[in-house]
Nucleic acid binder design. Structure first.
Lengths: 149, 149
DNA sequence: CCCGAGTGCTAGCAGTTGCAAGCACAGTGC
DNA sequence: GCACTGTGCTTGCAACTGCTAGCACTCGGG
């Protein structure tokens, strides 16, 4: 991490750690499940999940993936909170370009940069879409039954 | 990783490690830059980048982000290769661009023209290894100077 | 020949990640 | 009271990540 200023980077990392931890805790509370229940559903150890929620540890993307699965939210939502994925530019154009097998990665990036620049031109004051919390559907018995169909 | 069969999971993890490593190496070769140059651009140590490319180490998402920056491709492309992000299920680029309400018609056309031009380039120059002329733009001093403007 | 600059890699190490074992506490039923 | 089940957390440790110092090699110039 030589690129980072020593003091501010540490503060930033700590903040990011707390951000994803608090977000996970918030999602878990919203889902009304205990830390141990989530840990079991996610397939991670409960002490580790506890440490993550309190910002003491910084989980890998794989662990975030597992936690997302346990919470039944998208891994991407956690990645965004963890700062390893940008807010989705959103929309069919971005997805289509990314999925196009006829383009190289570099070409995709060039196209999307131009696309974004056009959008900025057209709507300079449009606010960015906020991360969604709609995935925090409460976990109930009824939900489990629906899950099995 | 208790959810996974022991033998197959190990094989799968190893494959994934080699996948992202080979992918990075391929992108680097396509960009015609040395391992050390990419390491410098990415802000990671060159021995570590070497180990990553050879599948000996499994980089974190943060490191992948840095490597993507050095390669000038999206971090998401690397995440997909690393198996921590799913391929977006997108529709055709043309349809998506045409349907995008954030763009003027002119902008749509410009984007689609560039898109088609890229595809043409790729069809004309595509051998089995699929290099791109855009991506294969040599990374020179001149480029660096242009980069800073 | 030597030297310098470049190449990719080896080896050892500090710090971090994720875990298992265990603790203290709360609530419930006998 | 006790035993049980559940809660979140502490601690120590093995494995891993990412680094630095250094190596061997190639190439070009003097």
């Amino acid at each position: 991490m030589d690129e980072h200023g020593e003091g501010r980077a540490i503060d930033k990392v700590a903040d990011l750690g707390r951000d994803i931890g608090e977000y996970i805790k918030q999602q878990r509370n919203t889902a009304k499940i205990s830390l141990r229940q989530l840990a079991r559903l996610a397939g991670v150890s409960n002490p580790y999940l506890s440490q993550i929620e309190r910002g003491l540890r910084k989980p890998s993307a794989e662990i975030l993936q597992q936690i997302a699965k346990g919470l039944r939210i998208s891994a991407e939502a956690l990645y965004v909170q963890a700062g390893i994925l940008d807010l989705p530019a959103g929309g069919p154009v971005t997805d289509a370009v990314r999925a196009d097998h006829d383009l190289t990665e570099r070409q995709k990036q060039v196209l999307l940069d131009i696309y974004e620049s056009f959008r900025r031109e057209n709507s300079a004051t449009r606010p960015a879409a906020a991360p969604s919390t709609v995935e925090a559907e409460p976990r109930s018995e009824h939900d489990d039954a629906a899950d099995q169909r």
